[in-house]
């Protein structure tokens, strides 16, 4: 118990250190340039402390519970014994890794749903659109995108195909979708690519990628282990644009914001 409290103290301290430059910039500009006091300084300070405590608790909890287990599972799922392959064998069918893809997709979906940055953006979008965009619907669409992206990324590591081709193909799809998607959703869709991959998703996904690239014969973890994050930021854009497109087809104009 005491060990937990001191560990939590350390987590809080490191969160404070990460926030320091942001707080300095905000306070600096507020005092020197805007030169007006904030509207509710006390309420905002309390809120800021909530954020600090919240992130510290969140990170500590992840470190205690999910990261070790998730990383252990990623490595267990990619061991040759579990997959039933002979390490000396050079040619292994990509189908042998079935459970890896399922795990990649489900962990991508589940972690994205709990991602705090996505929560923030989805909440804001629901507020601005006057409820036309539902926060939960948006988060599910993004999570599906991440799930598909990470599963495809795992397939790419298994087959050893070029990252470049996938990314270019993905961008071309985004480009075509952008031309047809409702204008109101485009900014949000592009943003959702960047917010999916932060606190929860990155460590687990990186562990999966490095585990895969280490186990599979002929892959270099340094060269092939990366790229999963790029998939996880690309496919949510496609998913959200697709979600908006479908919503528009089903109910014309429902996505326009309230005046």
């Amino acid at each position: 118990m005491i060990a937990w409290i001191s560990q939590f103290g350390l987590a809080l301290l490191s969160t404070c250190r990460d926030i320091l430059p942001i707080a300095a910039i905000i306070i600096g500009f507020q005092v020197l340039v805007i030169r007006k006091p904030l509207a509710h300084p006390k309420k905002m300070l309390v809120g800021f402390i909530y954020v600090l405590l919240g992130i510290a608790f969140f990170l500590k909890g992840l470190e205690m519970a999910l990261f070790p287990l998730g990383k252990l599972m990623a490595s267990q799922l990619t061991t040759p014994e579990f997959l039933g392959i002979n390490p000396s064998e050079q040619q292994v069918s990509w189908r042998a890794y079935f459970w890896v893809y399922v795990f990649a997709a489900s962990i991508g979906f589940a972690t994205t749903l709990a991602e705090p940055s996505l929560l923030a953006v989805a909440w804001k979008a629901q507020q601005i659109s006057g409820g036309a965009i539902q926060a939960l619907g948006l988060r599910i669409a993004v999570s599906i995108g991440v799930a598909f992206g990470i599963a495809l990324g795992a397939y790419r590591i298994v087959t050893g195909t070029e990252l470049y081709y996938y990314i270019v193909a993905g961008y071309i799809i985004v480009l075509i979708q952008t031309l047809f998607a409702p204008k109101q959703i485009i900014g949000l869709a592009y943003d959702s690519g960047g917010v999916t991959t932060s606190t929860v998703t990155v460590p687990l996904v990186t562990a999966l990628g490095l585990g895969l690239a280490t186990t599979i014969p002929g892959r270099n973890p340094l060269l092939d282990g990366f790229g999963l994050i790029a998939f996880a930021s690309l496919f949510p854009i496609i998913a959200v644009l697709g979600y908006a497109q479908i919503a528009q087809w089903r109910n014309k104009g429902s996505l326009s914001p309230k005046p």
Binding site: H40, M44, G47, F57, M64, L66
Partner: peptide, 27 residues
């Protein structure tokens, strides 16, 4: 530690959302 960690994450997420509406968005 799985159970304790999960409780921490839930509490952390709750505080974060609370602070978000009260502080980060308004700032």
């Amino acid at each position: 530690s799985l159970i304790a960690g999960t409780l921490f994450v839930i509490l952390g997420l709750t505080l974060f959302v609370q602070g978000l509406e009260q502080s980060l968005f308004p700032i």
